[in-house]
Simulated assay, not measured.
Amino acid sequence: MRHLERTRVAIIGGGPAGLLLALILHRAGIDSVVLERGSRDDVLSRMGADMLEKATTDILRTAGVGGRLDREGLVHDGFDIAWRGEVLHIPLRDLTGKTVTIYGETELTHDLYDALDEAGVPIIHGAEDVRPQDIATDAPFVTFHTVDGEHSLECDYVAGCDGFHGVCRQTIPADLLRTFERVYPFGWLGILTRTPPIQDELIYAHHARGFALCSLRSPQLSRYCLQCDAGDDVANWPDERFFDELEARLPVAVAAHLKRGPSIEKSIAPLRSFVAEPMGHGRLFLAGDAAHIVPPAGAKGLNLAVSDVHYLSRALIAHYRDKDDQLLKTYSETALARVWKAERFSWWFTSMIHMFGEEGTFSQRIQEAEFDYLAGSQAAQTALAENYVGLPY
């Protein structure tokens, strides 16, 4: 087995969470190695969230990757909810003084790669069978293999940023780990198309045929999603059928602005709420999807990953710079407090705007009452807006 040079923090997972953590640690003079199973092209091909909270953009700027974000990101002052032919505008800036920014996860990943390349932070792609070892001791290490053979990487800490299906959460002893999950009976069928968006702000549409979302990545790149059966197949949804269904679920005045075009990406994403507690054990700490999943309404997944990275990087910096381990000891508790609030909001928003046909008329009446209350209450709109732009750290 080949032994690599020792590093302080072994980061498993080369998505945005792992890359951002590596960059923040590098800026603080703390070395790390990122281990990623896929190739760089694989990572950059992953389609993810595109709505960034203000706190997220602030952290990215502080980390030194805010330049292109500020030039190309689309700042949104609000969004719309379409319901029974009505359109309710939620003015985020007026209600909270904050905005959100539309900037694709793929673009953010490009920016992080560029910054890490410039900094010389090692990223090992093609790392297979990655296994954190001895995490409950003072001498953890990570084993893996590449085309060059088997490797062992000694470290002080392991950061598990390897997603929902990764190995890091499974490394925590089963008798210590608690998981909480709700699987929703539908998915999101999403497409990306090189057409002008239907409008400059997002539209969340509730309809008897199912939920629809009109989003965008740029002034010439639109993202649309439809509620569909959880077991559906994209092969059942040629572009013409997709746009016909999207148009049917939008108010007539809104649908009139829809520009059709061939899809350049099409997929179905299942919806679930999931939380693992604690977010660490011994010298292993989880961040992002490795610890929690939210349904995509409200776009909290990437933003929660960034907040985890904020708390974890702060704790590691305190350990190395100040020899203070208090933040490491409380990392899980601190991160989970924000995670559960975002889980609550994502569950609530999902429950309000989707159709739950199997639940009968009571659920539908509750949804109607919820929207009526929201439409008539500035306090309710403010609560929605506060959660949408992101709760404070």
Rank of each mutant, 00 (worst) to 15 (best):
Y224A: 04
R169G: 04
A28H: 13
Y224S: 07
Q381L: 10
R223I: 10
E265P: 01
R8D: 06
A291W: 09
L336K: 00
G120Q: 14
A174H: 14
L4H: 01
R182K: 11
A208F: 13
L327Y: 09
A337P: 06
G29D: 10
G78R: 08
E36G: 00
G376S: 15
S267D: 12
G160P: 05
C155P: 06
E245N: 11
G66D: 04
D129Y: 13
E359T: 15
R84H: 15
A318S: 13
P262K: 14
R365T: 04
T179C: 03
G48P: 02
L4G: 00
T109L: 05
D42P: 00
D80T: 10
A253K: 11
C161W: 07
D77A: 08
A337V: 09
Y373W: 13
G301F: 00
L88G: 06
P296L: 03
R6Q: 06
T361I: 12
A17Y: 04
S222T: 11
V309H: 06
I172N: 01
A55V: 11
I203E: 06
R37L: 05
V254K: 11
G64Y: 08
R217C: 12
H206K: 14
L69E: 03
F242G: 00
G120R: 13
S313M: 02
A269P: 00
H292A: 02
M355S: 12
A318Q: 04
W237P: 05
L25A: 03
K259Q: 10
L176M: 09
L192C: 06
P251Y: 08
V142I: 08
R71F: 01
G78N: 01
R131A: 00
P173E: 05
G376N: 14
G187Y: 03
S313Q: 05
D232T: 01
G66R: 05
H207D: 06
E72D: 13
W348L: 12
N236Q: 11
T96Q: 04
I191R: 01
I268T: 03
L189A: 02
P296W: 03
I203Q: 02
A342Q: 14
H110I: 03
C161A: 15
D233A: 02
R27W: 05
V254C: 11
A255S: 14
G360F: 07
L116I: 10
L302Q: 08
F164A: 14
L213F: 10
